[in-house]
Amino acid sequence: SDYEVNVNGIHHRFHNISEELIKFIEEALRRGEDLREIIKKVRELLG
């Protein structure tokens, strides 16, 4: 049904976003950045 496609589409989009965010955060932590600064950047990215 349309509803299922829609829900799956939304889930898929969020899954991709969270994968990208996790990579972004892991790389920043590897560079020794402060978690609070990383979260601030993530918030800015998400608008």
Rank of each mutant, 00 (worst) to 15 (best):
S1A: 11
S1W: 11
S1R: 15
D2V: 02
D2W: 06
D2R: 00
D2Q: 03
Y3D: 00
Y3P: 01
E4T: 08
E4W: 00
E4L: 05
V5S: 01
V5Y: 02
N6G: 03
N6Q: 07
N6S: 08
N6L: 05
N6C: 04
V7E: 04
V7S: 06
V7C: 05
N8R: 04
N8P: 03
N8D: 13
N8T: 02
N8G: 15
N8C: 08
G9I: 02
G9W: 00
G9H: 03
G9F: 00
G9L: 01
G9P: 00
G9Q: 02
I10T: 15
I10R: 12
I10W: 01
H11A: 06
H12K: 02
H12G: 05
R13H: 15
R13N: 15
R13W: 11
R13F: 15
F14P: 02
F14T: 00
F14N: 00
H15W: 01
N16K: 02
N16T: 04
N16L: 03
I17R: 00
I17C: 02
I17T: 03
S18Y: 04
S18V: 05
S18A: 04
S18R: 06
S18G: 09
E19S: 08
E19A: 09
L21A: 10
L21I: 09
K23R: 10
E26G: 07
E27I: 11
A28L: 14
A28P: 01
A28C: 05
A28I: 07
A28M: 09
A28N: 15
L29Q: 07
L29Y: 04
L29H: 05
L29N: 05
R30P: 04
R30T: 11
R31F: 13
R31I: 09
R31V: 11
R31Q: 15
G32S: 14
E33N: 12
E33W: 04
E33S: 12
E33Q: 11
E33T: 14
E33D: 13
D34A: 10
D34C: 07
D34H: 08
L35D: 03
L35C: 04
L35E: 03
R36V: 07
R36E: 09
R36P: 13
R36Y: 12
E37Y: 12
E37L: 10
E37T: 10
I38Q: 02
I38L: 10
K40D: 13
K41V: 11
K41R: 12
K41Q: 14
V42L: 09
V42H: 04
R43K: 10
E44N: 10
E44V: 13
E44Y: 07
E44H: 13
L45K: 10
L45P: 08
L45S: 11
L45F: 09
L46E: 11
L46S: 14
L46M: 15
L46Y: 05
G47L: 15
G47F: 05
